Simulated assay, not measured.
Amino acid sequence: MKEQLLKAMKRNQLVEMMYISKAGEITKRRIKVLKVSNDTFESYCFLKQSKRTFIIQNVLALIPIIRKERDVI
């Protein structure tokens, strides 16, 4: 999972994340990875509209968001 986070950070790519909190709550969040450490990572969370720190081990899934350019006629 750490490798996927690093890849998303290097590519400046938004990702959708399935995350389980310490309380056991599962949430789906759209994030932009800002910094990756040993056990945690810092991201901008669009759900909470703020910077958040997440535990890498609690990430259930990461899905890259692919933006398509619209054709201009």
Rank of each mutant, 00 (worst) to 15 (best):
K7D: 15
K7M: 05
K7Q: 15
A8I: 00
A8F: 05
A8S: 13
A8C: 04
A8L: 05
M9S: 11
M9R: 15
M9E: 15
K10E: 15
K10L: 15
R11V: 03
R11D: 14
R11T: 07
R11S: 14
N12T: 12
N12K: 15
Q13L: 11
L14H: 14
L14S: 15
L14K: 15
V15M: 02
V15A: 00
V15F: 01
E16T: 03
E16G: 04
E16I: 05
E16F: 06
M17Y: 01
M18K: 10
M18C: 05
Y19G: 04
Y19F: 14
Y19S: 02
Y19W: 08
I20R: 11
I20S: 08
S21C: 06
S21Y: 04
S21K: 02
S21F: 06
S21P: 04
K22P: 03
K22L: 05
K22I: 01
K22A: 05
K22H: 07
A23W: 08
A23S: 15
G24A: 08
G24T: 02
G24I: 03
G24Q: 09
E25Q: 09
E25A: 06
E25S: 08
I26E: 13
T27P: 01
T27V: 04
T27A: 04
K28F: 09
K28L: 12
K28M: 09
R29P: 13
R29V: 14
R30C: 08
R30N: 13
I31M: 09
K32E: 07
K32G: 00
K32T: 00
K32L: 13
K32Q: 13
V33S: 03
V33Q: 08
L34A: 07
L34V: 07
L34P: 10
V36H: 02
V36G: 04
V36E: 07
S37K: 13
S37C: 05
S37V: 05
N38C: 11
D39K: 14
T40V: 13
T40Y: 13
T40G: 04
F41P: 07
F41L: 14
F41E: 12
E42G: 00
E42L: 13
E42Q: 14
S43L: 09
S43M: 14
S43Y: 12
Y44W: 06
Y44N: 05
C45M: 05
C45E: 01
C45F: 01
C45W: 01
F46H: 11
F46D: 14
L47D: 07
L47E: 09
K48M: 07
K48W: 04
K48F: 04
K48Q: 14
Q49L: 02
S50Y: 03
S50E: 15
K51Q: 11
R52Q: 12
R52N: 10
R52H: 06
R52P: 02
T53H: 08
T53C: 11
F54A: 01
F54L: 02
F54G: 02
I55S: 03
I55A: 04
I55L: 07
I56S: 03
I56A: 05
Q57P: 03
Q57M: 04
Q57V: 09
Q57A: 10
N58G: 02
N58Q: 14
L60A: 00
L60P: 00
L60V: 01
A61Q: 09
A61P: 02
L62F: 08
L62I: 13
